[in-house]
Structures are given as structure tokens and as C-alpha cells.
Design a protein around this nucleic acid. Sequence first.
DNA 1: TCCAACTGATTGCGTTTTGCAAGTGGTTGA
DNA 2: TCAACCACTTGCAAAACGCAATCAGTTGGA
Lengths: 170, 170
Amino acid sequence: MTLDRRSGCPINLSLEVFGDRWSLIVLRDMIFGGRRHFRELLNNSMEGIASNILADRLKRLVELGMLTRADDPTHKQKAIYSLTEMSITLVPIMAQLGAWGRVWLPVTEDLSIRAKLLEEGGLSLWQDFMDELRFEHLGIGTPKPIDATVRARLRAAYQAVVDEQARKAS
Amino acid sequence: MTLDRRSGCPINLSLEVFGDRWSLIVLRDMIFGGRRHFRELLNNSMEGIASNILADRLKRLVELGMLTRADDPTHKQKAIYSLTEMSITLVPIMAQLGAWGRVWLPVTEDLSIRAKLLEEGGLSLWQDFMDELRFEHLGIGTPKPIDATVRARLRAAYQAVVDEQARKAS
DNA sequence: TCCAACTGATTGCGTTTTGCAAGTGGTTGA
DNA sequence: TCAACCACTTGCAAAACGCAATCAGTTGGA
């Protein structure tokens, strides 16, 4: 699980960074789920990541410059993980990955509504979202009204689908 | 190496299809390198894929609907692998992956010129390229003059960089 | 006709990575 | 005081990987 530099091809090097079954899942949960702590990532993980794998990936992503780790001032044992510019610019990749998966794989409606919005929003929405992440994680730029954020919109859309599914089921 | 359906999230499902260190490399060589045979993929692989891994990935990609396998009429033992619409539409993902890698990872100039062109060409170039692949692999659409193809342009640009590097080195 | 080179794989084997369950030492808040 | 929580580690079995050798055929040239 280290960089072996098999070749200088950009696709190959990208794969060496996050071409495994967990790294992008962790980053997805941080980017779209807003998770910042080990426990949040561990317990709320939809796919059920194991704690040793999570610890390993966090360590690795920090070493690679995709995340930073800082002590949480509110709790001596808590660590806070932040995205870096390197991982924030993964948003277009996530968007394309979601768009492709939505077409070709057996996605569930609730979990793919975000991918749909991201796809429809296009580059300008991605940029807005990346700006939000820069503010949240890097302290760069200015805050937005909390309900106008891309993340809030994505979350609201997700909730609407879940509610609708519950209504149908009842 | 099978689909375990950890969740219905499109990013997760995409990762379950090609979230490993070799599947996308094989597809990259088919898409950008025009390789169609086992030996071509094995011997010309920049990253040095092992024959058992290649055999396994080809089999898996066929099972997943990303490739099809057909007998080569010119040689009884040869098999021809073709991309499917499912794998052809990976082009935007490849382009984003290449663009990101070019910015953040230690890519070499010769191997990243293609990613640069693909990035600059944008969606319309990706579409042209996908149309070419559809013609080559699916027999859909009409052929283009051989030197006007996107692949020919990418290859020419690559060669120009390699030649320039050789000139500098001499 | 013979044979070396080539075809898409497979086999055996040692190493690495993964997944699971349990446990670590320390912190916090009631 | 003490249960709950904190990030993370450990032990171990199972799976995946990487390498080299090998396989049974096919082909083209001498």
C-alpha cells in the first residue's frame, strides 16, 4: 500500500494513490458526508469499513498529502481530519464516477440522487462545491448562508427521496 | 475480485468494478493504446502486468460486461477483445483521472501529453474519441480518415514529445 | 516435414493485503 | 466513580498478488 511508481503515466499514478477499494470511500464520506473524525467515518460507513483498514488509509492519505490531521481542541483524544486542495479537486472525478455508475450499475435511487444533481449541475456546481470545501477545510474564502450550500442542497434532495420512499412503503 | 454489493452508492459500485490496481490499466491500454490481444496487453504493458493477473482481469471484465471476447479469424488461438459501450463511456473518467494526476503527481512529460490534450479538448473531443471507439469496437457509425482520428492525433503528439526529448538528450 | 516462435492462458508457491473480532491505554461527562 | 467514548493496535485466517515456469495447441519458414 505504498507508491511504487510503476510508470509516470497520470492514470497509473492516480490509481496508485486511490486505486483500491477503500481510499475513495473514505474521501467520499469526507467530501459528501462532511465527516471529520475517525469514529464518524467508522460507524457511519455505509460499506462497513474495518477499523484497522480505516486507520491504515487515513495514515496513508495523510502521508500522500490528501488529508491533514490535527488535534481537536474540544477533546484531547479526538483527531480532526481535513481535506487538502489535492483531495478537494477530486470532486470532478467523483462526479464522473457517480455519473457513470448511475448509468451502468444497479444503484439505489436514494444513494444516486446526489450523483444525479452533481451531474446536472455541471462544472459550475462542482466549483461551488469545491469552494465550500475550501472554506470548511482550509479556511479559505467566505462562508455562505448555511442552507444555500451545495452540500445542504444535496442532503435535502437525498432526504426528499428517502421520505418519498417511506411514504410509498407505508 | 467479485461484486459484493457493499452498497447501492454509485461511487462504491464503480469502485467494485474497477477499484483495483489493474482493471483500469488494461482498459487504458485498450482505449488509448488500441490493444486488442492478450499478448499485446501483456508484452507492451508499461507497468508490467503478470500474465495470470491479466488473464483474471480480462475474464472478470468480460463477465462484468466491460469487454467482449471473440475468436480472431486470422489465427485459431488468437482472441480479440473489444470494448463495450459500458467501457467506452469510461473516457470522461479517464480524462478527469489524467487531468488530476497531471496536476498532483510526478507524471512524466511524454506520458502526460495525451492527458493534456484530452483535458484541453474537453467534452467535444471526448465525444469524438468515443465515436471512434464505437466504430472500431462495435462497428457502429462511419469511419474517419485515418490521420484525422483522435487517437492518431494523441499518438502524433506523444511521438513529438518523445522525439524532442531524444533531441535534447543527444 | 520439422521445429522454433507464438497463442491465450494455467499452475505452484511465497509474500502481501484484507477482514474480522477483540483489546489497548487514555479521556470525558454525568 | 464509572460507563461511554476516543483513536487506534493486535492476532489470525482468508484472499489477492507477483513471479517464474509451464501448458497444449497453432503457425510460418526452412
